[in-house]
Every structure is written in structure tokens, then in C-alpha cells.
Write a protein that binds this DNA or RNA. Sequence first.
DNA 1: CCGTATCCTCGTTGATACTG
DNA 2: CAGTATCAACGAGGATACGG
Lengths: 119, 119
Amino acid sequence: MRDSVAKAMEVCPVEVAIAVLGGSWKMTIVKHLVSATLRFGELSRVVGGVSARMLTRQLRELEADGVVHREVYAEVPPRVEYSLTELGRTLVPLVQMLDEWGANYQERAAQSPSRSRIR
Amino acid sequence: MRDSVAKAMEVCPVEVAIAVLGGSWKMTIVKHLVSATLRFGELSRVVGGVSARMLTRQLRELEADGVVHREVYAEVPPRVEYSLTELGRTLVPLVQMLDEWGANYQERAAQSPSRSRIR
DNA sequence: CCGTATCCTCGTTGATACTG
DNA sequence: CAGTATCAACGAGGATACGG
């Protein structure tokens, strides 16, 4: 398990969940893998604005945390497919709630578009 | 709104939720505020191992994101109380799910205590 | 009691170039 | 196609000291 997750375990279960899911683009990745198995390049496209370097890193962490499965096909050109593990599929209702909450938050923000500038 | 949240809005609603809730100790703070209004010092105690500096910072961000309300009482000695806003209370089911998922993850990890050391 | 100010370190991320 | 290597820049976070 990753150190950040181990550290979260000493604090609170909610922090464990955040440690596993809180990385940049991670939940977006999981969200897209809910409905389909995707190749690296496909993920790169559906997740907007992520570099190959970051996408690789986030996928490796999700794999290390047992959420995502990585299947490599020994072909030319190479093909690598990513899918949710059994554990990953337990995230489905969570992803839905987060997505809905985020969308609702976005709507509210659109109604009062002030910026509070915390530094 | 904070820049990280604005940035997340351009990616995906789930990222918005993560941007608001993903900071260190944030969900732990929210979790504890679900059942009670708490003073700064009380939060400092129930959230383990957080410095005053970080706790202040996380609380200010949660306030900026409209999740937490900060009430200052002009007394000596000073008293500052933190509570959930209406928006913050919409997080309650989310916090419960994250807590359960994290606890379940922790149980699984306890059964296969391997470490994958991703750097 | 409830913070802020300052300094410093370390991890994370972006950009770019390269490879099996 | 699906990455890795390398370097530079940035920001989060700890330690410590101080203030209203």
C-alpha cells in the first residue's frame, strides 16, 4: 500500500478514502472506467488536459491501491487496457454521489460567481 | 471560489467534489462537525496530529468553499466556533459513504498487509 | 485562546525529449 | 502506442516564534 494511504489510516477512515481517491484526475479516471474498459490513449482523450506522465502515475497508484486492473497485450503496436477491479466497482455509488454533489456545487457557484481568493 | 476548484470545474464534476473535499484533514473536520458545533481547540483535539497552522488553513478553505461557517465571539478569552453550512450538511451522506468505504478498505488491507512502494 | 509570520524542505507537477 | 528520463518550477506542509 502507498505511504499516503498508510498515513491516512492512522487518522480516520474518511481520510483513507480521500488518500486513495483524492489524486488529480483519479476520480475522473474511475468514472470513465465504470462504463467501459479503456486503453491508455482512450483514457488520455476522455480525461482532458492530462499529460502522459501524470496519467501513467495516477493509473499506477490506482493499480497499487487495488482499484484498477492493468492488462498488457504483447502486440505490435502495444496495447494496454485499464479496467476496474472488484474493489474498484465498489466505488460506483461513491462516484455517482461525488459527481452529483460536484455538479450541484457547480450550479450554485454559477449563481453567485464571487471569488474569495484564498492565498 | 478557490483556484483549484475553478480548475476542477473545467475537468469534471467529480473533480470539483475532490477539489473541495480532498485536502488533508478536511473530511475528518467535516465528519466531526456533522454531529456538533466545535471550537478551534476542540477540533484541534478530535482531529489528530494537525498543527494549528494547517487546521486554520483547511478551515479557511472550507469556509471559502461555503461548506463551513465560522462564528467569532468577541470575548476574553476569544472563542471561535465552527459549524456546517446548509451546503455543508448536504455532505453528510457523502461523508458516511466515504467513511464506510475507507473502513472497508482498511479491513481488506489488514488481511493482505503487503506494501507496493510506489514512488 | 486562536490564531499569524517567517523560513525551510520536500514532494508533486509541467515541459520536453526520447524509446521498446 | 504507451510509456520513461530528465530538469526546472511550484506549492503544500512542518517547525518555530510571535501577536491580539
